[in-house]
């Protein structure tokens, strides 16, 4: 018996209309619609698209709970074994909707989902950890390669196979245990020899890719500028009131500098578990230079030291958490009209 698949698409690929129909309310139709026809062919009779969910991109963005619930119901009603969503190419709202319903269905219906997007679709960053997202071109011209790739990955998941690199999904950052014939030392030396010879080699542990940010212009008038202090060195009030973890921090703290001219051992400490805490606990100014900035404030070198400081522990902290802390702290400092930040790191 063929596996049963439900397919999610937007108003455009359903042939209903473009931007003017982006408010199209979610509807469920039996059988295939739009790109579902090609997908059904690529599934080669091993799986059947039993129903298609069509939803306008704006409707999905504005009624996310309702849409997720409707997709869940449709998957249950049609006894789906898997959800396909998209391909969304570089359509941002569509990609985000595909990611949202796929992730929801995996969690709440307990069936796998496959979606497909261009690597820069904003849906990729949000959902790649939870989902198999097949990498596509940036427009519907990539349909011809997206469809067979989605079908192949869907069939692998339906049969309980472990997808591999050949399935062309966007790297999820998930490490899987595997066995090799040779030990790590031997593989490392082989890799090194290839590197020395200038031959191509593939790392077993790719490094995360970090954002690059355009440098901000110089501060023009330091004498009237408000300067903030932020640290990943874990400087917190004594007792670590926000329980910032010594490693793999899940949060950051926001603390008042009001009335503080100098950080002292009786009132301040570090929460960081990745370096010898002795020196920071004796005098936390060694990590967060409050004493010096107060002097410079008094002398009029800077306008003002911002009244709050922000601290987390940069010790095995995930890039995702660090990015979130950075965005939140950045927004708060912007709202407080801070001109510049000194970020200290241990």
């Amino acid at each position: 018996m063929a596996y049963r698949v439900v397919h999610y698409i937007n108003q455009f690929f359903a042939g209903i209309g473009g931007e003017d129909k982006a408010d199209h309310e979610l509807e469920v139709r039996e059988g295939v619609v739009g790109p579902g026809l090609a997908l059904a062919n690529a599934l080669k009779g091993e799986a059947e698209i039993v129903a298609t969910i069509i939803c306008g991109d704006n409707f999905a963005a504005m009624h996310s709970e309702q849409v997720c619930a409707a997709v869940e119901n449709a998957c249950k009603q049609y006894q789906a074994d898997l959800l396909l969503a998209g391909p969304a190419f570089n359509a941002g709202r569509y990609g985000t909707a595909c990611g949202m319903v796929s992730s929801f269905v995996q969690k709440n219906v307990g069936i796998p989902a496959v979606t497909a997007m261009y690597k820069e679709n904003p849906g990729v960053d949000i959902y790649k950890k939870d989902l198999y997202i097949v990498e596509t071109g940036d427009s519907a011209r990539g349909m011809g390669t997206a469809v067979p790739a989605m079908a192949k990955l869907a069939l692998a998941l339906l049969k309980g196979e472990q997808p591999s690199k050949e399935h062309g999904y966007i790297e999820r950052g998930v490490r899987v245990n595997t066995f090799y014939d040779t030990c790590g030392a031997e593989r490392a030396v082989t890799m090194l020899l290839k590197k020395i010879k200038g031959e191509p080699f593939t790392t077993e542990y790719p490094m995360p890719v970090f954002d690059r940010v355009e440098p901000r212009p110089a501060v023009k008038d330091m004498k009237s500028a408000t300067i903030a202090l932020v640290t990943s060195g874990g400087i917190v009030p004594k007792g670590n009131p926000d329980h910032i973890a010594a490693s793999s921090a899940q949060n950051y703290g926001e603390y008042s500098l009001s009335g503080i001219n100098d950080l002292t051992a009786d009132k301040h400490q570090t929460a960081h578990g990745g370096y010898d805490q002795t020196y920071a606990n004796q005098d936390a100014d060694r990590v967060l230079p409050v004493d010096v900035l107060r002097d410079l404030e008094k002398e009029g070198v800077i306008g003002k030291l911002h009244e709050m400081w922000y601290a987390t522990v940069g010790n095995g902290t995930s890039v995702a958490n660090a990015r979130r802390f950075g965005q939140e702290i950045g927004q708060k400092l912007k709202d407080a009209q801070v001109q510049a930040v000194i970020l200290t790191s241990t």
């Binding site: 440098p215 060195g233 010898d276 020196y279 100014d285 060694r286 990590v287 970020l343 200290t344």
Partner: peptide, 15 residues
């Protein structure tokens, strides 16, 4: 990071 100031050592960058 765009503007980087090298400091003293890991456990006491500014001391």
């Amino acid at each position: 990071a765009n503007r980087i100031i090298p400091t003293v050592s890991i456990p006491h960058p500014l001391g």
